[in-house]
Amino acid sequence: MRWIWIDKFVEFRSGQFARAIKNLTLAEEHLHDHFPGYPVMPASLIIEGLAQTGGILVGEAGGFAEKVVLAKIPRAEFFGVACAGDQLIYEVTLTDLRAEGAVVEGKAFLGTELLADVEIVFAHLDNTRANQIFGPKNFVFTQQLLGVLDLAKAQQRAKENEGALADGEVNGEAPVAPTP
């Protein structure tokens, strides 16, 4: 089973930026063990949430043609803890995209307070090479994780359609002034 550390994308700009949220609840087993009596989200799982947000951003920029794997985390700074009842906001900016991989800057917030600041490097693996190493299962872009992105895109289209209707557009065309 693969754990998903994103509940919802709230903003997604292809090849540029993604914002996602994760609501922390006591229904999540890892919070019962880390730490008993003081349920704190492990820093490694916050990084994983940022990596999933960034991995989708990187993968989508390449049309999901290759597997995107976390290669390294050159920098990770934490400024506090997240507990059950908190909502994490992940913000990831794509800073470098190349054929061999990508780099993202990620920040996790509790409200407006910066909780974590990380740099994540991803590697691209073509499907042939990835299958040799990991087998044919798509462990990176699971249906569940891609479903989170699909929902965000549908919500974005709905917002754009609402804006167009508010501006008086019909089927993508500007309103026609009545003739006298």
Rank of each mutant, 00 (worst) to 15 (best):
G62N: 14
G54S: 11
P136Y: 08
L145S: 08
V121E: 14
A99R: 13
T128D: 12
V140R: 01
M1T: 12
G37Q: 10
V81N: 13
W5Q: 06
A164T: 01
S14A: 12
A174W: 11
L57D: 10
E11I: 02
G85W: 06
A174T: 08
P180H: 06
F35W: 10
E105Y: 07
T93A: 14
F122H: 04
F134M: 10
I73G: 01
E100D: 12
P136K: 14
V69R: 02
A20C: 09
A20E: 05
G37Y: 10
H124D: 00
T25M: 02
A164N: 12
K159G: 10
R129C: 00
T25D: 02
Q144H: 09
P36C: 05
E28H: 04
P175Y: 10
P175R: 07
V170T: 13
A158W: 10
D167G: 13
Y38L: 12
I73D: 00
Q156G: 02
G55E: 01
H124M: 13
A99V: 05
E105M: 02
I89T: 15
E60P: 00
E77F: 05
G63Q: 07
Q143G: 06
A82F: 04
F12A: 10
A158F: 09
E113L: 11
P180S: 11
V10Q: 07
P180F: 05
V176W: 03
T93D: 08
V58W: 10
F64K: 07
F139Y: 04
P36R: 03
H32E: 03
G15I: 07
G168S: 07
N161S: 11
E160G: 05
T179G: 06
V140H: 00
F78E: 01
W5M: 15
A27E: 11
A166V: 01
A51G: 06
T53K: 03
P175S: 12
I89L: 14
G55I: 10
K137M: 11
N171F: 11
Q155P: 00
P39A: 05
V58Y: 07
Q156K: 14
I89R: 12
N138E: 15
K107N: 11
P136Q: 05
A76V: 13
V121K: 07
G85A: 06
D7H: 05
A71F: 10
